[in-house]
Design a protein around this nucleic acid. Structure first.
Lengths: 263, 263
DNA sequence: ATTTTAATTTATCATTTTGATACAATAGTA
DNA sequence: TACTATTGTATCAAAATGATAAATTAAAAT
């Protein structure tokens, strides 16, 4: 295993651009909570966002797609770059809860003497942040061999992440909240069919405030890109809500125009 | 001169992160046109945005400030990063109108044999784009020694820029137009005191559409962060308009909240 | 079968905002 | 003193919004 790791790290150091990394905040919505996908390092207590390096002959956007797929098995996410984290202090060695982490890792995995590898991975990191919104129940993340496990954790309850990635998550959320007012990206977070209540709850969580139900519904349906489907019989003692889906054509058209939502 | 250039390029290759560059779109507003500051290379026909590299021990944001100051003499601009350009094809050698440009340059400046330099500068470039908004009349750009001259050119009439930077400008404008709806950044582009007509004209140019005068004025003044100053006597045969300025305190407060402008 | 419950959908209405237009004010000119 | 061009303000119908109430209806309880 250590040997595999060594090979894989060596390959990265040969094939990828040094000092420039990608971190992905994959957000999902479940049990009325906004969650992000984080990974636990083998034999460590610390958690990390899925991330990686850009190959020398690969567009940055391609790299983000590949990295997410390698780490999580998730394909065709709509990844959007949102910020460059360029602090001079960011590196595997200096940041996070465990300074000097790199050394102990290298030793642990029997890479202690490989100075070339160590040099490559101890460089200062400039990081490009991407985010994606996914519907959790539809996604079955697979765990990359370098990690032990992965978990969807509520953004409110994230532990301290590797490399100061809590800031990455925070910044991604800021971006999404602003974005929401002129490009309602909600489609990505919801199942294909959903009720207005579910949509409203999502907005409330993203915006961090409660909305009046009847007015929310009026505004949303007024946007005129929802299709009303059959009712959803929930099994509870109340009127069954309609299921809605996005009218792709109208939705895309509206996005082009820009949607001025006042919520 | 060639020697100076060689020293300066050598210094860059020693001190800076390889393969990661910054480009700055400095926008100003003059004669009812949105203009951007571009530079002409010594002895070349081609134009370039001010740009440069990030020092190994410098935050990316610091680097942007420094680069703008070195190239233009302009200080304390509010530079905002807006996009990473990560095409695998971007490099001094491969992009733009003049492929193979690097070789001819190196030779021209007597750097032909310096393989180390050549290697450094022929790397693939990932570029972080920044923009700033300035009031042209208040700014006196100075020209960096590596350039021959600089000029404010209307974004509508830009020539082909170095390294495909026309895309950089285009993307910056897209960002600003969206930004304008929730963060009226207009302050930066206008003189301290301005008339409502001037403000309106600026909005019309940024948004690319005409607006109804009376309604525009009503909305703007309704935002409640303008101070009405003395009148501006223009010398023309008509009612003299009031001059307005930003109430800094209220303006900043409003920016924090986020401004939902429907125009 | 009928009533009750709880959530959804639709309706109502006063208030605010918007778009379009008209009108009034005024610095300079003729 | 009247005229011109532009600015500042007012007006008003239409649309959007916020707050609340009423009607609807699956499922459960009686």
């Amino acid at each position: 295993m250590e040997n595999n790791l060594q090979v894989s790290l060596y390959k990265i150091s040969q094939e990828c651009l040094p000092g420039l990394s990608i971190e992905c905040v994959i957000l999902g919505y479940e049990n009325q909570q906004l969650k992000t996908l984080v990974f636990k390092f083998k034999g460590e207590l610390s958690w990390s966002l899925p991330g990686g390096f850009i190959k020398k002959e690969e567009d940055v956007e391609e790299a983000a797609d590949r990295i997410v797929e390698e780490r999580t098995g998730l394909k065709s996410l709509y990844l959007k770059q949102f910020h460059v984290f360029g602090s001079k202090n960011k590196s595997y060695d200096q940041m996070g809860k465990y300074p000097g982490q790199l050394d102990s890792w290298m030793e642990k995995f029997g890479l202690g003497e490989n100075q070339e590898l160590k040099d490559w991975f101890s460089k200062r990191l400039v990081t490009i942040g991407f985010y994606a919104l996914v519907e959790i129940s539809e996604q079955r993340p697979e765990v990359d061999p370098i990690f032990e496990s992965c978990e969807w954790i509520s953004v409110e309850e994230l532990p301290d992440l590797f490399l100061g990635q809590n800031e990455t998550v925070k910044k991604a959320l800021e971006h999404i909240r602003i974005q929401l007012h002129y490009q309602p990206v909600s489609q990505a977070l919801l199942p294909k069919k959903f009720t207005m209540s579910e949509l409203q709850k999502l907005y409330e969580i993203l915006l961090g405030k409660t909305l009046v139900r009847s007015n929310f519904q009026r505004k949303m349906l007024g946007l005129d890109f929802f299709i009303r489907n059959e009712k959803k019989k929930t099994g509870s003692a109340n009127k069954a809500p309609f299921l809605y889906s996005f009218d792709q054509e109208k939705y895309q058209e509206a996005l082009q125009q820009g949607i001025g939502l006042r919520l």
